[in-house]
Design a protein around this nucleic acid. Structure first.
Lengths: 297, 297
DNA sequence: AGCTCTTATGAATCATTGA
DNA sequence: GTCAATGATTCATAAGAGC
């Protein structure tokens, strides 16, 4: 059985990454601590200090990313004193000065955003997914994230209990749901730069992570099997979990021991699951993500 | 019949606005010429010069906007040389230095954007609608743009769950019954900061037009009847057309004679329509937007 | 299997009070 | 006076239980 590595490290990514060679990773996808949030875990970076805190780390990212690789940064500025913070804008400008290309800004449109009502503001239902690259010629596998089009497709998917078109696409691709494979093949369209996913709820293990489908989408788009994925702010381990399920090698780094152990145990679960699966089917199983979908159903 | 003015002007807004008094407008909503587009009209603003070109104009906007007023700037940076331009980011930072508050960034999610495919980029399905204000206390009529609640509400409110009781008791102490009253019989919810409108098709007279529903939404949200709306880059006249239909006074400015005449003729059409409507119903018609909705239905 | 109903909770924001 | 903690407000999803 081919080995897929999920290397979980404890420490500050700026230090941990020093032991990694240049041009190692195909994709860096991460959701760093936002300014003034997760204050207990990362020392509570003030908005004014955020760029200065981030740049030494992104410098290492730049070094370990392959020339054809992509860096996806999921971030959103908070409101304070009636205004939006500008530190994310400053960060984009500073990253360009550091040598990054600001290739694209994807919008993650959150279907179930936090409720609330304020006299002069509506609920915040979106976050930025900023795409940075080292060169204009980066690897992008657009066909991997094509989605079915048409109204019938949308309602059919909803009736399956998953609003996630992408996931459904891979189900059909793995031979699960042959009844709809016909129109799937007929009506595939490329997505836009607006990603419409729900945040995951009911997850008691941790407080704040992105849903699995978000890193999954970018991993599909920017990597192939056996490629290397890095999440330097791993949090509860979502990125490595998804990467392993998808047959990508991954490195995840977090500074909090609590998150480190949580991620470690997740990866172990996946390993055990793959082993059982492999035994019961009595053969190699390249398409690991197929299990996951079957499980969820 | 009460008079609603739609004042269309020909010229550069930086000059035309000099004849307007301070604190005149309740809302400025506009979609300015993007960098490198409409090159013949404003002398072909290069991305690098965009901020310098914009600031004298926004300075006038700041002057003629009421302290409680709002400035909505619909803009999106183009991709060039494989990157997103940064002039919009620079513009936000510069506008803040000019005295504006960057209150919010709405996302206009375009449902049916142009199809297309590029080797390393997906279709661009969103634009920024940047909200700027002169003070934190601005006029916002949130109830005017409420949307139907999701279906969950009907079943959810039949019987409140145990955890609702716990959460309300622990946070609000005595407020449980009061909160129930807030939820019962409610079928409208406040929207989010992601605006989901279809782009209008079939309007081929001009290139970069927003759909009527976009200015309509902001006019509803930030103005009342008889208020004053300004669009300093009027283009084909959409803003003034919508404003008049909604019973708001408006001023629209454009530097191109072609657009000027187009807008003028549109306004006349609206006048005639109102007149006919008024005649056929044989009475005054304060709520002009009711026509619009009836028509749309 | 496929519904309906129940329940938990999520990178939220602002005003006010307390240190 | 600056900064930190607390209370009030409120929507949409998915998992799980029940039939």
């Amino acid at each position: 059985m081919r080995e897929i590595k999920a290397d979980i490290r404890l420490g500050d990514c700026v230090e941990v990454l020093r032991s990694f060679a240049d041009n190692t990773f195909d994709l860096i996808v991460t959701s760093p601590p936002y300014a003034d949030s997760r204050s207990k875990t990362y020392g509570g970076i003030k908005p004014d200090d955020y760029v200065a805190w981030f740049l030494p780390r992104s410098s290492e990212f730049l070094r370990v990313l392959k020339p054809t690789g992509t860096f996806i940064l999921n971030i959103k500025e908070k409101a304070a004193n009636g205004e939006r913070h500008t530190y994310v804008l400053d960060l984009i400008l500073s990253l360009r000065k550091q040598g990054w290309l600001w290739t694209e800004e994807f919008i993650w449109h959150k279907k179930n955003c936090y409720p609330g009502k304020w006299p002069n503001r509506f609920r915040d239902a979106w976050e930025r997914c900023l795409q940075f690259n080292k060169s204009k010629k980066f690897k992008m596998l657009q066909d991997a994230v094509r989605v079915p089009m048409g109204e019938w497709a949308q309602t059919r998917l909803k009736s399956l209990g998953k609003n996630d078109v992408i996931r459904f696409n891979s189900q059909a691709g793995s031979g699960f749901g042959k009844n709809i494979a016909n129109w799937l093949n007929r009506d595939l369209a490329y997505p836009t730069n607006v990603i419409h996913l729900a945040t995951e709820t009911g997850n008691k293990n941790h407080s704040a992570t992105f849903p699995k489908s978000l890193p999954e989408w970018f991993i599909k788009l920017f990597t192939q099997e056996d490629d290397w994925v890095l999440d330097p702010f791993l949090g509860s381990g979502t990125t490595c979990e998804v990467a392993q399920e998808m047959g990508r090698n991954s490195v995840g780094i977090d500074i909090m021991a609590e998150y480190y152990h949580m991620s470690k145990s997740k990866i172990k679960e996946v390993d055990r699951f793959l082993l059982e699966e492999s035994a019961s089917y009595g053969k190699h199983n390249r398409k690991r993500n197929s299990h996951v979908h079957r499980k969820k159903h």
